[in-house]
Write a protein that binds this DNA or RNA. Structure first.
Lengths: 197, 197
DNA sequence: TAAAAGTCTTAAACTAGTTCATTTTTTTTC
DNA sequence: GAAAAAAAATGAACTAGTTTAAGACTTTTA
């Protein structure tokens, strides 16, 4: 993907919530860093302090933690047009608990912490953009944290398929199990059951 | 609680993230509505369009949905110095799925949707306040939605006690079960087990 | 293109959590 | 302050999801 395409993608994403002048667009783009990650490579690992907030222009990544037994718990899959990172670590400059690993060759745009702060000084409109972006993410996480707790694994799988039909075909069953919160073995049973219905 | 005390509480809460002039403080206070809810009364019910975002100055409320079988799933307990409401319904003016019920006699300050919009026009600094508020809530919900899925009920109970030591003594075991995502019977067993340890 | 590594499937034995039913304890209400 | 209502405790039978192990299928790597 060339620069122009990835810039159009991120500016369109921002354009959903705020209007920018040509000058502001240029200024914004100048604050971004181009990043490439090959399949299976880490964008970031637990213990590091997150340097960027990421916007995905191409590919797919998984964001996950490891529990005491070393089992992975996937908190999100990020594909084109998604934002990702570890906000807690990014904001408070504390070591992250998350790993971010590419499941396909991927391309991203990164906004560093210094540039994030600068952004609000230079284009205060971005306070609004992030206010709305966070608000919307919040609505969906509140819903997920309730559903995660109250639905059965089978119901969560059916919801995931409905909500992310494009993602479901790009990830392994094992990773999906790590997201749904069950073992790969039980995931396999659920899938064959649901497909039989 | 008198007006002055509740105004100090909310202004201190806001003061954590942004600085306001005296004039701005007055302006902000003038946009708020005083609300009282008696124990067991509803602040809001599913099907209604949420009219306010609420700040609690006294008391305790539970925010919950009912599933198809009529079982309650509690998404948060809100006590003094907390913000609550249904953001999805408030923002998009769509019917809410949530009930909010007082578990103690409570007092709140409400910001209506019209005044919320006005606020950003009159004191743009509030974009920043909400950007930071939402960002912090997001961090804790992301953590909760992962933990909710990957910890056992007993671990979730121990975490809740550690994180909200003051709330745990103000709510019933039954409501806590509705938050943790288990039956009241199993909650009872966990509590007696943990206390025995 | 063969070997190695990882993913998926299946099944049996197990455990965390549910359901239903009953009794005791606490809180609410008049 | 007695009666009613709600919450909490306990136990037995059940179900959703885990664990372990082994074989089949796919993808990656040299």
């Amino acid at each position: 993907m060339n620069y122009k395409e990835s810039h159009t993608l991120i500016l369109d994403n921002i354009g959903r919530f705020i209007d920018l002048t040509e000058l502001e667009k240029q200024k914004y783009i100048s604050l971004l860093t181009e990043i490439e990650v090959k399949k299976k490579a880490f964008l970031m690992q637990a213990g590091e302090i997150t340097r960027y907030e990421y916007f995905i222009t191409k590919g797919c990544l998984k964001v996950y933690t490891l529990d005491e037994e070393g089992a992975p718990h996937i908190s999100m899959f990020a594909v084109e047009d998604y934002w990702t990172g570890d906000m807690a670590s990014f904001m408070d400059k504390e070591p992250s608990r998350y790993f971010i690993k590419a499941t396909e060759d991927s391309e991203l745009l990164g906004l560093s912490r210094a540039n994030y702060d600068l952004l609000f000084q230079e284009i205060p409109k971005f306070e609004r953009f992030y206010r709305i972006l966070y608000q919307r993410s919040l609505v969906s996480y509140i819903r997920r944290s309730n559903h995660g707790i109250s639905l059965t694994a089978e119901e969560r799988y059916i919801e995931f398929k409905k909500k992310y039909p494009k993602i479901v075909n790009r990830i392994t069953q094992k990773d999906l199990a790590g997201y749904i919160g069950i073992t790969p073995e039980f995931m396999s049973k659920i899938i064959s059951k649901v497909n039989r219905m």
